[in-house]
Simulated assay, not measured.
Amino acid sequence: MRVLGIETSCDETGVAIYDGEKGLLGHQVHTQVAVHAEFGGVVPELASRDHVRKTLPLVEGVLRDSGLRKQDIDAVAYTCGPGLVGALLVGSAIGRSLAWAWGVPALGVHHMEGHLLAPMLEAEGPDFPFVALLVSGGHTQLVEVKGVGRYRMLGESLDDAAGEAFDKTAKLLGLPYPGGPELARLAEQGDPTRYRFPRPMTDRPGLDFSFSGLKTFALNTLHEAQHAAGEGGEASEQSKADIARAFEDAVVETLAIKCRRAVRESGAKTLVLAGGVSANQRLRARIQEIMEKEGGRAYYPRPEFCTDNGAMIAYAGWQRFSAGQHEPLLFGARPRWPMEELPAV
């Protein structure tokens, strides 16, 4: 079965084709960084309009790159939620329309399930069961995974997700959009001993997260550095780098502490790390270290599949189509969609 996957949940347009026997046949991603950079963040209306312009050309491009025709597609999967409602409706409408025109089934896919399953696109992916840490711009979640659709939420962010905290702190430091990767690059120049930020909610039981306080702590630390520079002074570039390093260390260590707690409580020997923040090299190294000490193993997708992409949607769709799942012609978008509501495969 060949599945065309369409991802339009936020500010990347992704299209891919997954073959159940041959694997990923092709994928393309268009990023909207240039569209939103001057505003310092995603503008939903502009995101939706850009998806309208880019989705069909990407579909044509992936078919061409894969050496396929529309008649070779057996099913269409599209991101139905969660995400920006306007952006989701673009992908849903296009995906459902293509499926109707081609006479094939269609299915709305959960965006975070796509991220969760993305490591399985690799040649050596994880086996069920496992614990997954999903860290993206809008979500930070620890999930116990026993199979496709068999999910139990262990913990999640009560306010800002880790990716949001990265982006907002980067903006405080005057870094360009998108801020998360820029902050990580700046942190490479920072002194890890100058500042120490708190590790929120690690001194109490449970697996929930809270990162909004770290953003405030970073702001106060920046103000102290500016005050030390004198009247009307600006914090030095080194001070900003030191703040970035302290912030990144705090987020990474907080995530690591909760992951270690989750694998110990669940008894899992496999941890999956996925989502945009999972590309952070310091986080990967720390998780790898923890799982080695726990006698287990960590899995994560290659960097191009950490951020939003059509390949993960095509693969998640293939899993569900293979189990006989499909949906009626009526479609919609679910900007808020608990993953635990998904049916098991």
Rank of each mutant, 00 (worst) to 15 (best):
V90D: 00
M153C: 12
E21S: 11
E188A: 15
E164W: 09
G67A: 10
T8Y: 01
V85S: 13
F305Y: 15
P105T: 00
V3T: 06
R302N: 11
Q28K: 15
L116R: 02
E164P: 12
D72S: 12
E12T: 01
L172F: 12
E265S: 14
T140H: 10
G67M: 03
A77T: 09
L134Y: 07
N309L: 00
A311I: 09
K215E: 04
R185L: 15
A132M: 11
Y177A: 01
A132Q: 12
A99K: 01
H223N: 15
V345C: 14
H139A: 08
A244T: 05
F128G: 10
L186V: 08
M112G: 06
N309P: 04
Q189W: 11
G310F: 03
F321H: 03
Q281N: 09
Q71N: 11
A311P: 07
P57S: 09
E224T: 12
E265N: 09
E164A: 10
E292T: 14
T202E: 09
V252I: 08
G103Y: 03
R150E: 15
V277K: 02
R53T: 13
V272W: 05
E248F: 00
K240D: 00
Y315Q: 07
A235H: 11
R69P: 07
A218Y: 04
I313L: 08
E164R: 13
F331H: 07
G91L: 09
T216K: 11
H51T: 07
V135Y: 02
S136D: 10
E341T: 15
Y78E: 06
G61A: 13
C80I: 13
